Amino acid sequence: MAGGALAAVLMVTGTSMATAVPAAAAGAKYKCVAEAHLDLGRPKATSSCKKSASGKKVSKHRVKLVCDVVRGRGTPHEVPRVLYGPWVKPGQKSTVMCGFSSFTRSWAVETKA
C-alpha cells in the first residue's frame, strides 16, 4: 500500500510540473528584430524573435515592409506600398517580399502581447 501512495505522490508532482511549463513559456520575454536585403533583385524583409531577459512579452510577430514601386515610363514616379508578413509565433520567421521595380523604403517588426 505504501508503494501505491508513493506512486500517487510522484504522479501528482509530475502533473504539476507539466502544467507549470506552459505557464513559464507564456511569461517569457523576447527581443524582436527585422532585417532587409535583396533577393534576386527584389527587396525582402524578415523578422524574428529570440528570448531575452530585457525584452517584452510577445505572443506573435510579423514583419512590415514599405516599398517604393516605380510607376510610369515617360516620367517615372514612386508609389509607396506597405506589405505585411504573416503573424507567427516567437522562434519562427515572418517574411515578405516586394515586387520587381521596387526599392526598400523602410522595415519594422510588429508584435502582439
Rank of each mutant, 00 (worst) to 15 (best):
K44W: 05
T75P: 00
H37Q: 15
K50P: 05
G55D: 08
G91I: 04
V58A: 09
K64Y: 00
W107K: 11
P80W: 07
W107M: 01
K93R: 14
S59H: 06
A28L: 08
F103I: 04
V33T: 11
V63E: 02
V63N: 04
V88D: 11
F103T: 06
D39T: 14
V70N: 04
T104G: 02
Y84R: 12
S54F: 08
K64M: 13
A36Y: 02
P80V: 09
S59I: 09
W107S: 03
A53S: 13
V82C: 06
K89S: 15
S94E: 09
V63I: 09
V58H: 02
A28T: 10
P80Q: 14
P90D: 09
S47N: 05
T75A: 10
T46I: 15
K57Y: 03
L83M: 15
S52F: 01
K51A: 13
V88H: 00
W107G: 00
S94T: 06
V58Q: 05
V70I: 13
M97C: 08
S54G: 07
K60P: 05
S59A: 06
K93P: 01
K29A: 02
S94H: 01
G72A: 05
E35K: 01
S102K: 03
V66N: 06
K31E: 09
P76R: 07
F103G: 14
V82A: 13
G72F: 10
K51Y: 02
S101I: 07
R42C: 10
Y30M: 00
V58S: 06
V82I: 15
Y84Q: 14
A28V: 05
K56M: 04
